[in-house]
């Protein structure tokens, strides 16, 4: 049972949330079949720092983004949906920290 810091409500136990998969996957306006398959099905699934979406479904109801290390499950940061993806340098620094 993770303790997830909702950017709107603060830290709450995982059972208040629903995971919504990899973040920052843009829905293409135009796509050939291969690009559309990428959008629908292909995932980074990294072993390491991962940006995913959660919804505080039994709380404020908001979707937000979460940076988590998938080996330690340690949550490094959360930020609101729509906020820009952290830069690679920032992610790299976080990755060291969370290992």
């Amino acid at each position: 049972m993770l303790l997830i810091p909702c950017p709107h409500c603060g830290a709450r136990p995982e059972n208040e949330f629903r995971n919504a998969g990899e973040a920052h996957i843009a829905r293409p306006a135009e796509a050939d079949d291969a690009a559309w398959a990428d959008y629908l099905y292909m995932r980074t699934n990294p072993k390491g720092v991962f940006i995913e979406r959660w919804r505080h479904i039994h709380g404020c109801g908001r979707f937000f983004n979460c940076v988590r290390h998938t080996v330690t499950d340690r949550i490094i940061a959360t930020y609101k949906a729509g906020d820009p993806r952290p830069s690679l340098d920032v992610l790299r620094a976080w990755s060291e920290h969370a290992r």
Binding site: M1, L2, E14, N15, R18, N19, G21, E22, N45, K47, F50, E52, R68, T70, V71, T72, D73
Partner: peptide, 13 residues
């Protein structure tokens, strides 16, 4: 568990 993880461990729930 409900989230992507390589931790080989999960929640008690």
């Amino acid at each position: 568990d409900a989230y992507v993880s390589y931790s080989q461990a999960g929640g008690l729930h």
